[in-house]
Amino acid sequence: MASLKGVPLLELQGDIDHSNCGAVETALSEILNDGAQVVLLDFSRVTYLDSGGICVLLSGCRRARDSGWLGVIDPNQNVRRLLEIVGLLVDPGFRVFDDRPAAEAALSGALSQEEET
């Protein structure tokens, strides 16, 4: 399992559709079941997403929302547009980052905030 600053990172690629989103759901559920509060998904090599994949993100986001969030890194413009249409971009349990350094910066901010409190 890859990670970024100790946060689990799922690296996905290709088309995520109804035929294979079950595998993504299983992987994400396992990470959340293990107690992760923040999960990152690298979308830089994801070419396509349909409602099957969106549903996995929505349910993961719902589970993470109370104590953490789901972060998607570098979705292409078309995928990002879909995330916007279904309202994920304004969900408090969901974040989008342009690249890995941006995600790392957000994680550093979150960690230092925890130290302050």
Binding site: S51, G52, I54, V86
Partner: peptide
């Protein structure tokens, strides 16, 4: 439990 609820709104939106 399925994504069927999302499919139609997506079709209409796109």
């Amino acid at each position: 439990v399925s994504s069927r609820g999302l499919g139609l709104p997506l079709m209409v939106a796109l």
